[in-house]
Simulated scan of single mutants.
Amino acid sequence: MPHQTPLHAAHVEAGARMVDFAGWEMPVNYGSQIEEHHAVRTDAGMFDVSHMLALDLTGAGATDYLRKLLANDVAKVKTPGKALYSCMLNEKGGVIDDLIVYYFADDKYRIVVNAGTADKDVAWMRKQIAAQGANVTLEPRRDMAMIAVQGPNARARTWAAIPGSESASATLKPFNAVEIGPMMIARTGYTGEDGFEITLPAQDAAALWTDLMAAGVRPCGLGARDTLRLEAGMNLYGQDMDDNVSPLNAGLSWTVDMKDETRNFVGRDALEANPPTARLIGLILQDKGVLRAHQHVFTEHGEGETTSGTFSPTLQKSIAFARVPLDVAPGDAVEVDIRGKRLKAVAVKLPFARNGQALV
């Protein structure tokens, strides 16, 4: 039986089509996935992301622990509320998960991990605590819910729905968060649009969802979330990278920080011994068809494979991520095997769209 978020009843009441996603019963859409997608690009939409897991890390050894756990370096984050995106690697350099860590003090962090990897992540983190003998406490917060409000009008509509939130978050810069009592408002997201991700006590989630709807925010499901993130050039764990894929081959080299030669994070030795062999690039289909994951890609420099693909509502074209040879460059003509036919596509630089605009 799939888990249910604190907003499950609200989704059912709104007529959402529910599906099993990573062991959670989640809304895929509320009628029109395309309209939900456009609502986020042009106005404001909201997503129930309570299936993701927030973890609170506290203790005197928190910073040192995270510097060894993550490929990105939390030492460069010193402003309370500042967020850092990173991969957590295994010893072979594969991606256990991609996550966001929020810094509040040297002994206080919040980490948000993906739903499908949550149990695996917690087990790995606790294993590393034991291995390091770290003086930290890791607390999963399943008592919290998360709502992502995204779009050009997302912040204004959030302020209308949450009294007092504007004064606390109006000057919040992207990739920063602020705590308002038990609530955390982060200017982060997974759509390529401005907005907030709000973490709050589970018992308060349904009321906030209702207030956001009253403020003009449109409920959106997993379908729109996937097309939005793909247009925005954002990886999805389990498709664009996993335990067997190096971040160096997944378009995530920018999240790997090796500047401090003394910082021996898990997976560093493997990354140094195995330089990138492929790159992640965007594709736009030129012929009629739809790009999906796991389609064969043919280039002048060798073969590759699509990792994610969809029809882009913003571009009105079929788009994909593809892992291809390093020499493939934006502008190159390629072919993709779709149902036994080699169809023409062009390689482009990611992202495809952000901030309401097509970029390619």
Rank of each mutant, 00 (worst) to 15 (best):
H296T: 12
Y102G: 03
D56F: 00
P247W: 13
A186G: 14
G31Q: 13
L248F: 15
M183L: 12
L55G: 04
A148G: 04
G289L: 13
E91M: 02
F21C: 05
N235K: 06
D332Q: 09
M183G: 05
L212K: 07
T310F: 01
V290S: 09
V256N: 00
E231S: 05
G233C: 09
A75E: 13
A118C: 06
K68N: 06
Y109V: 05
V74M: 15
S318R: 04
A333I: 09
A202D: 05
R292M: 11
R323G: 08
Q295S: 06
N355V: 02
D121R: 06
P247V: 15
D260N: 14
G116E: 01
E272A: 14
P276H: 02
I34Q: 01
T191N: 04
V112N: 10
E25F: 00
T306K: 06
H8L: 07
Y190C: 05
A115L: 12
L200A: 08
L359V: 06
H51I: 00
G309I: 02
F311Y: 15
E179G: 06
N90K: 08
V178H: 08
K344D: 10
P163G: 05
A215E: 04
K341D: 12
A105N: 11
T306G: 02
V136I: 14
R268W: 01
K78R: 15
D269W: 00
F321M: 11
L280A: 13
A168F: 07
N249G: 11
V101H: 08
T42I: 01
M213Q: 15
A134W: 02
A115F: 14
L350H: 10
G93L: 06
R110K: 12
T277S: 14
Q128C: 13
G181R: 12
V77N: 09
A202H: 10
C220Y: 09
P152W: 00
T171D: 15
L285K: 05
D56N: 02
V28R: 15
T5Q: 11
E13R: 10
A186T: 12
A161L: 04
D20W: 00
T158D: 00
I185V: 15
E25P: 03
T199K: 11
F298N: 04
Y85A: 10
D20F: 04
N72D: 13
L53C: 07
A168K: 15
I34D: 12
D56E: 12
M18G: 04
M213T: 11
P247G: 08
P330E: 11
Y190A: 00
N176C: 08
H37W: 03
A62N: 07
A177K: 07
D332R: 01
K344S: 10
